[in-house]
């Protein structure tokens, strides 16, 4: 037998092997290692007895506690629905005209509507519902498709230019790209459109363009936007006389809109949100506007 080699620092014997200078000590495994190993094994054993654990061919051991994640989640959902039913049934049953007067229901609308809006609408309309380039501001300006609760709820249900069968459909023609108007007409009508919300333009250096544009507007635009440019909620045509713009109200933006046309898109939410959720969203949006400064 080889002479036993001991490590002077720890006093433990080596295993007697050496690999390129590396040796190993034959130190016994510290007791806590066995203790904790046994603890985790025992815990697992108990857990297997109590919970669904081992496959047995076509089935599995169900565990003494009889816990199953499917029934657990179903039960949790039922509980949550019951808690919410207190106000949910009221909102579902009440008319749009009644709910805003009920402070407790409006608290639900403000809390729940905020997260519903954040998760479903904010990506386009912004977290504060003020919109952004290409997406309407919901807190100000006139409504494209009507501002009654029923109209707003219907817009949410079917969407705009969406895949829904009853979708609201609107299109601003591409007057320039499709060669419906010469460039000079587009420049003139752009000046006129801008003067609708900014009367000072009509008396400024562009007064001539505005006057010429009035004619172009009367023959080409009034069918949708109306004689006075106030828009038409039947066709989703925006009011051009207010200062709220979806695609920008500066001259260049208006020119771009006239030249290339516009066709906004809003998805249908009928398949994705429950009638209750859509009702809460409708109330939430109208409440936002009511409270907007």
């Amino acid at each position: 037998m080889a002479i036993e080699e001991r490590d002077p620092h720890t006093g433990h014997a080596t295993t007697g092997h050496e690999w390129n200078g590396i040796k190993e000590l034959n130190t016994p495994v510290p007791r806590p290692v066995y203790f904790f190993l046994a603890t985790t094994f025992l815990f697992s054993l108990f857990y297997w007895v109590l919970m669904p654990a081992w496959p047995t061919g076509v089935s599995y051991t169900k565990g003494l506690l009889g816990i199953d994640q499917r029934t657990t989640v179903a039960e949790n959902l039922r509980q949550a629905a019951m808690e919410r039913a207190v106000w949910a049934t009221k909102i579902e049953a009440s008319d749009y005209s009644v709910i805003p007067a009920d402070a407790s229901l409006m608290q639900v609308v403000r809390q729940t509507g905020r997260t519903l809006f954040g998760d479903n609408c904010a990506a386009c309309h912004g977290a504060n519902a003020k919109g952004g380039p290409g997406f309407p501001n919901l807190t100000a300006g006139s409504w494209l498709w009507g501002g009654s609760p029923e109209a707003v709820a219907e817009t949410i249900r079917v969407g705009v230019n969406s895949t829904h069968g009853d979708a609201r459909v609107a299109q601003m023609p591409a007057f320039g790209k499709d060669q419906m108007l010469p460039r000079s007409d587009i420049e003139n009508v752009a000046a006129f459109v801008q003067s609708l919300s900014n009367p000072s333009i009509a008396t400024g250096p562009d007064a001539g363009k505005v006057a010429a544009g009035r004619q172009v507007f009367a023959t080409n635009c009034t069918a949708c936007h109306g004689e006075a440019g106030k828009g038409n909620i039947e066709m989703g045509a925006p009011d051009l006389t207010d200062t709220v713009w979806i695609y920008g109200g500066d001259r260049q933006s208006i020119m771009t809109t006239l030249y290339g046309g516009r066709q906004g898109h809003m998805p249908t939410w009928e398949a994705r949100l429950s009638p209750l959720d859509r009702k809460i969203l409708t109330l939430y949006i109208l409440d936002l506007r009511r409270r907007a400064p």
Binding site: K23, E24, L25, N26, P28
Partner: peptide, 13 residues
């Protein structure tokens, strides 16, 4: 262990 110049603490571990 090469850099430390020490044997491995425990072969059994």
């Amino acid at each position: 262990p090469m850099r430390a110049g020490r044997p491995i603490f425990s072969y059994r571990m």
